[in-house]
């Protein structure tokens, strides 16, 4: 594949997976500017690491690892001295096109779920996001670097707390 096609293919992959990148940035950053910073950094690191992507491995697993590692490192840095690039004017990496109201009750539940995730520690957040993305225990263990048994135990505890929160 020539570099131009590679570039286009990469950008398409990012566009196809923008939802997960946004959900990760929303889970790790409360501030809108920080979310934009983090999105920029995730996209940049995905591009940089793309050269080393082993095509025999699953793309989504690789992408989650990079995005979550970047998010955790970003979250833990006190000074946002990293990648923030201003594009001038009112240009942003993330743009919202359709702001029409959806199902009010569902939106409220999603907001509550997001609030719960935001309260978790950095590593538990990553675990919860992967579970909600319907990854198997095996994949979650592979991304996080812990055993499947450990994944099951921790998830069981987090889900218990989540159910309690929704019942309140």
């Amino acid at each position: 594949m020539n570099p131009t096609d590679q570039h286009a293919a990469f950008l398409q992959l990012i566009q196809d997976n923008k939802g997960i990148l946004f959900k990760i940035s929303h889970s790790y950053c409360h501030d809108r500017n920080d979310r934009e910073d983090l999105m920029q950094e995730m996209v940049y690191q995905l591009w940089k690491s793309g050269q080393r992507f082993d095509t025999h491995r699953k793309f989504s697993t690789w992408m989650y690892r990079i995005a979550l590692n970047v998010a955790i490192s970003f979250y833990r840095r006190q000074r946002r001295s990293g990648l923030k690039i201003s594009f001038g004017g009112d240009l942003h990496l993330m743009e919202w096109e359709d702001r029409t109201e959806g199902d009010g009750e569902m939106e409220e539940k999603i907001e509550l779920l997001q609030q719960f995730i935001n309260q978790l520690g950095e590593l538990d957040k990553a675990l919860m996001i992967l579970y909600l993305e319907e990854k198997s225990y095996r994949e979650i263990a592979d991304v996080l670097g812990i055993t499947e048994t450990n994944v099951a135990t921790k998830l069981s505890r987090i889900k218990g707390r989540l159910k309690q929160q929704f019942m309140q």
Partner: peptide, 23 residues
């Protein structure tokens, strides 16, 4: 919970766009 997350995904798919010309 997973259903809620999927609904969230549908919403993002419809309304979020990444301005990758800035890349």
């Amino acid at each position: 919970f997973q259903q809620m997350w999927r609904a969230y995904d549908v919403k993002l798919e419809k309304s979020l766009r990444l301005n990758l010309r800035l890349f």
